[in-house]
Design a protein around this nucleic acid. Sequence first.
RNA 1: GCUGCUGUAGCUCAGUGGUAGAGCGCGUCCUUGGUAAGGACGAGGUCAUGGGUUCAAAUCCCAUCAGCAGCUCCA
Length: 673
Amino acid sequence: MTTVKLPDGSLKEFDSAVSVKDVAKSIGSRLAKDALWGEIDLQPVELDYEIPQGEPVNLKIITKKDPNALATMRHSCAHVMARAVMRIKPGVQLAFGPTIENGFYYDVECDEPLTEEDFPAIEKEMAKIIALDEPFERLDRPRADAIQVCKDLKQDFKVEHIETGLADDDSLSFYQQGEFLDLCRGPHIPSPRRIGAFKLLSIAGAYWKGDQSREQLQRLYATAFFTQAELDAHLELLEEAKKRDHRVLGKRLGLFHIDEMVGQGLVLWTPKGSFVRQKLQDFISEHLQRQGYDQVFTPHIGKLDLYKTSGHFPYYQDSQYTPLVDREYLSQLAEEGCTCGELSNLMNEGEIEGYLLKPMNCPHHIRLFASEQRSYRDLPIRLSEFGTVYRWEQSGEIGGLTRVRGFTQDDAHLFVTQEQLGQELIGCIELVKIIFDAMGMEDYSVRVGLRDPDSSKYVGDPQNWDLAEQACREAAQTLGKDFSEDPGEAAFYGPKIDFVVKDCIGRKWQLGTVQVDYNLPERFGLEYIGSDNKPHRPIMIHRAPFGSMERFIGVLIEHFAGSFPLWLAPEQARILTVSDKSEEYGKRVESQMRDAGIRVKGDYRSEKLGAKIRDGQLEMIPYMMIVGPRDAENGTVSIRDRIDGDLGAIPVEEAIAKFQSEVAEKTVRRTSS
RNA sequence: GCUGCUGUAGCUCAGUGGUAGAGCGCGUCCUUGGUAAGGACGAGGUCAUGGGUUCAAAUCCCAUCAGCAGCUCCA
């Protein structure tokens, strides 16, 4: 008699010995077909495993749909990969080898570094190991034994990990497969034959335990799927994603240029890219005006005193451009025989006179606020500026438009009373929502950064913090979207709400941000006169709904895969003549459209129509208007839509009206998600 | 900043020790073609920069700069 208890609590009884597969069959033929392996009392077993008779056993049949099935298989594949590397390279030290979103990695340290040229050999060895079909066997060892096992294996990272990271565990598990033994929590698949298809993807550096001061390891990235077809589909998806990379599209569509001679991370906007940027600025400016913001302009530099007061200099010196040392101060230092080393020390200590390229706009706005006496009747004061700031980002972090050294924030600083804080935060969130909605961006996440209760780095009154954190939560709730609350993610000066999106290869970027600040009003001694005729300290809100124009446009290019909606497209429509004979008519239509405010160009080359269409498609022109003798005769254009193709001939006026309404509606029509 | 890879024509790339190639683009000419590439000819490169090895370097070595991936960082 065999009795199994299924995850739903139901019991199934069998008169004779049965395998896992038999149980699956008894439940349904579909399940039997989809079953990958079983789990008896949480231990993975093969499908042909004969279930022990007698006492009831807990059985779970694992299928592809099981959320952990793929991850479990991939983790087992990571073991196989590590084993293969150890067979090929001597003296391999193993670190961590977890599963990640679309695959897995294993951190290793080798005497001679691995390169991508080693991949074929590793993959071949992995295939051999899988063909051996040795099971993954779990071994539990008491703490002291476990340390000894790792010492015997000469796996120093594992020893350290047990001694520090797993200091509270009395018993530790290992998994053994053939000669390969590894400290591992599990679970694993019952045998490697469940690894359908795998591929090594890349190799990169990573620090042991993520600590820059520790050993640098080599991280082998790979992925695995249950079938070759799934792996192929995944790889194709990666290729497709690369095609919408904003760096590739930015070059192909001529949106921006980053020039070696100008400097790393410094963006040159081409006319087309500048157009998109300007349109976005105009768009948000209109909403700022509606919300009662005042726009201001401030310079790109400020005296060091300003940043000493704000606290930004010298504390963030590593991420700032070197100061512009005051001319007279510099000659004075020279007269005193100051050496380079001494100058450097003076900079480190912040004891230097000169100017700084502004790393943020707040100090300038603060001085504008402080330039007049303010009454509670004036508040809230909302100063906004498309302010360009410069930060010395680490060279290895810079790339494309998403991480640059000079960027323009759609910045604003709100000076508010405690009572106004909640409502103003909601207003800020509203702006972010307006932007995401207008772009049809739904795939973003919201993070409320709260203070870490165990840390003392935060400035300001804890009661105010509580109020501000609650105000942030309430503001976030107005989005009607899930948000995460992240303790420890607040800035030292106040809580914040961040908006995060992913780029084409899955990297996360913060776009919009709304931050409460109790610190700067304090440091600058800001005041307003209250209704009680006494001075009070305002609270500041920093907010940037786009984040920065650079990063936002970078993400936006990928979001639209280069196909901007009509209202944002630098070139909205293009006239394509069928032959030279229609050039005159084409030019007439062109000027008619231009007069109607359409951004139109004409392609009058003596190319065949097919070639002109192809070029227009590749340049992602929203509408192509084909004009030939037939159109000239009827006063029409034959419209071709970037997405839907040929729409047939319509009168020129009708085409103009169509475009104008699409622009007015800010319609978003995307070719793919 | 760290590790690894990469840097050849405007763009994408081939070229592994014997003084440079393709496709696209660009120019000129021919072609006058109705919904994703018509044809011919031509111009265009101190092979990222600076050193070194060698009779000889795009090719091998070192440094610098830049790009890519990851790590670390991001007021």
